[in-house]
Design a protein around this nucleic acid. Structure first.
Lengths: 70, 70
DNA sequence: TTTCTATGTAACATATTTTTTACATCACGT
DNA sequence: ACGTGATGTAAAAAATATGTTACATAGAAA
């Protein structure tokens, strides 16, 4: 999957959920702070599992967090 | 993301969409036939991008193809 | 200013996903 | 029987995601 055309609202959702920090979100989904940071910076897109976990933490559907533009 | 608890309906959706073969689906989403085969066999879960592409081919939402059981 | 917290970033290591190549079986049509 | 298309499978390599460690900056608060 060469081209990375997946956008996400992680940053926005973090602030909509009680000023959650990158570290807090990371801890809740079981990855490191750097991974969350890289995702917000869109350096790469997460695994499907991680995407599901993040959406779950925010209590929304996966497609409300990640959007694919084709 | 150690634990693989993502189920999918790829096989069912292939047959609901005009008897699409694994090779045809693979070609449409830009991966090899073996990758589709491995996904149907749930050997691993796909990247988020591949998941989006597959859902798009079937014209459904991502969560109608892949389900995360936590 | 000093301290603390959140964040950005980079190099290297490990894990996971995907490709490539190859061979096997099964069903179907001829 | 033979050829063909669809599928299952496997090993090794390539690509990508994630972890670890470490250092940097910016802002807030004291």
């Amino acid at each position: 999957m060469k081209d990375k055309k997946i956008a996400n609202n992680i940053r926005t959702l973090r602030f909509q959920n009680g000023e959650m920090t990158q570290a807090e979100l990371a801890e809740k989904v079981g990855v490191t702070r750097q991974t969350i940071n890289a995702l917000e910076a869109a350096k790469y897109s997460p695994s499907l599992e991680l995407a599901f976990k993040i959406a779950h933490v925010f209590g929304v559907g996966l497609e409300e967090v990640f959007q694919y533009q084709d």
